[in-house]
Design a protein around this nucleic acid. Sequence first.
DNA 1: GCCAACGTTGGC
DNA 2: GCCAACGTTGGC
Length: 139
Amino acid sequence: MRYWLFKSEPDAWSWDQQVARGDAGEEWHGVRNYQARNNMRAMELGDRGFFYHSNIGKEIVGIVEVCALAHPDSTTEDARWECVDIRAVKPLKTPVTLEMCKTDPRLADMVLVNNMRLSVQPVTEDEFRVVCELGGVAP
DNA sequence: GCCAACGTTGGC
DNA sequence: GCCAACGTTGGC
């Protein structure tokens, strides 16, 4: 199992909206970046990820799960762009802010801290555990 | 709202 | 295939 982080501006698509989709999940469409797309292509069913609110909040708010493998992005005719579906698993008890990630030495290598602009990122197992700990939930 | 960083596009 | 121009992201 691998771990990931999905970024979304809550104005466009928020954690609450994601939760409202329930187990059916939602297509993570709109990614137009090769690195982010390649990350989604590498995902497997059941992989876990964090849901991060950019701009507003700047914090990791919940845990999601990949529930459909990469498939063509329904929002474009351009065959280059693919995306997975994800569904909400559970919220963090305490959101983990970007500030906290920057401060915690165990998270110094997180892509979130070092490559701000990548919208779908890999997260290591260790980082996943640390963020869960900071967020007050079991991994 | 600004602007730095960075990815993509397109002319040559 | 290079690189300048442009657009977008996202923290501040």
